[in-house]
Design a protein around this nucleic acid. Sequence first.
DNA 1: TTACCTGCAAAACCTTTGCAAGTAC
DNA 2: GTACTTGCAAAGGTTTTGCAGGTAA
Lengths: 139, 139
Amino acid sequence: MSDGSEIRLTKQRQVILEELDRNRCHPSADEVFALVRERLPRISLGTVYRNLELLAERGLVRRLGAAGEKRRYDVDRSEHSHVWCRTCGRVDDVPGRAVVSIEGGPAVAGYEIYGYRVEFEGRCPGCRRAVAEGPGPGG
Amino acid sequence: MSDGSEIRLTKQRQVILEELDRNRCHPSADEVFALVRERLPRISLGTVYRNLELLAERGLVRRLGAAGEKRRYDVDRSEHSHVWCRTCGRVDDVPGRAVVSIEGGPAVAGYEIYGYRVEFEGRCPGCRRAVAEGPGPGG
DNA sequence: TTACCTGCAAAACCTTTGCAAGTAC
DNA sequence: GTACTTGCAAAGGTTTTGCAGGTAA
């Protein structure tokens, strides 16, 4: 948690960042583990967790996740929001800065506000198609 | 998961709802458990989880939570958002409907959008005060 | 060299689940 | 009476942690 100092560039960290960069599907820790393990078969899940946490603390990756779901990670640091598929849990990007206004003005009871996050909820193209085609017998 | 039908009104459900109504601090499941247990000492944690889940499915409570944090529950069904204290994890309400606009228009790649959620992040009055008073020796 | 980092494995933590007994309707 | 609920306890899944050996700088 040494916030200001440089972090040591280990092979593990390098590969984690590279795989996050190549797989912008907002993978969870175990998905990152699986991806990285193809290139570093001896890496451990604990190392992946430790590094994702460290990278998140330093703002190199963003941590996503909602309501008790498992965490997901995102290397894209540009301003964007996310949309979750309520049916299958897939997460996609919503590019662009989200501007929020609260009707009546934001009354946030003495808080000092650092920022905000917008998350959309919906049904992804795949699940929409599946529904349109009909659930079939028994569904 | 019988969505349309009535749910049976058990003592446990009644007390869970009453305690949520009296404690609008967005308690987590174990906090609800502790509150309810004062009145129903024999209730089990499993029952609390099952009922919170059931009530959430029926829209009687809202499920909150961010980035792998544990779930929290809220009985207030009016339109409002939440603000999280980054320092102590406390959650407060931000009353009023949040209106979101995405610069450039929302491009959500074929999704059918059901809604969105806005979460503010900041520092609560208590933690602001603590910082203002200085971290003291060692901190 | 040395402080930081890793792999391993166990623990901690939150949530879900199977089952027999109990209860609302 | 019956289907739905409960309490209990164990299992499940995700994340964290202690430690000894390894490694970047």
